[in-house]
Amino acid sequence: MKKNNSIFTLILALFITACNQSHSETNSTQESQENLVIEAQKAGYAVGDEATDFSLLNIDNKRVSLSDYADAKGYIVTFTCNHCPYAVAYESRIMDLDKKYTPLGYPVIAISPNDPVIVPEDGMEEMKKLAITKGYTFPYLLDDKQEIYPQYGATKTPHIFILNKEKGKNIVKYIGAIDNNYADKDDVTERYVEDAVDALLAGNAITTTTTKAIGCSIKDKRSKK
């Protein structure tokens, strides 16, 4: 630590190198970021809330809604994207979740929340390419108006919301990370999403209903979050 920095103010900046590739600094006349962040975090769902349905364009040019899945018991709604290194690290694990839980009634519904103008890698054509290359078995939707992710309260990719169908409503049961080790899937010791869905399937209470993990902030032209 340099002496002159430590006298009155220390700034701790947390970042990931690969995320900075898409960094675009914009001038803003908005109020202080402090207020923006607080507002953004107040919005969105808590566990127990009813989640909204949506109609978003999929990589096959068709629109997908939760209500299309008449037989589903619930959903693993996954906000993810192409470019973020944390999302990339979880690609195969998201596929595994879908393969395991779609037959059990909890399909993965992936939504890319970023504005492709800010992150061209997250545009629909690029999403199609990734889905084909990886062989995605789940819908990969673009939140093109960026209206769905703020309602859920997603702030980053990946960010998971597990929904359970209860009396015709989609109730939020879990918010957070897939597991506790993005970097090494062979060294995971907490499988939050699997534990939560397994608990729902068994009719048990979910032990851990919210978790926090690092992810890339969602890129939105309105708030430049």
């Binding site: 700034i11 001038n27 402090e34 962040v37 890339c216």
Partner: peptide, 30 residues
């Protein structure tokens, strides 16, 4: 406590006390 885990994130400390936390990108002006 307010941090969702999204990065970048910036914490400002003064005299060993946290005075501001910002989640998300900041402009140079901010």
């Amino acid at each position: 406590a307010e941090w969702s885990g999204a990065i970048p994130a910036t914490v400002f400390y003064k005299n060993n006390k946290k005075v501001l936390f910002v989640e998300g990108q900041m402009t140079k002006e901010e």
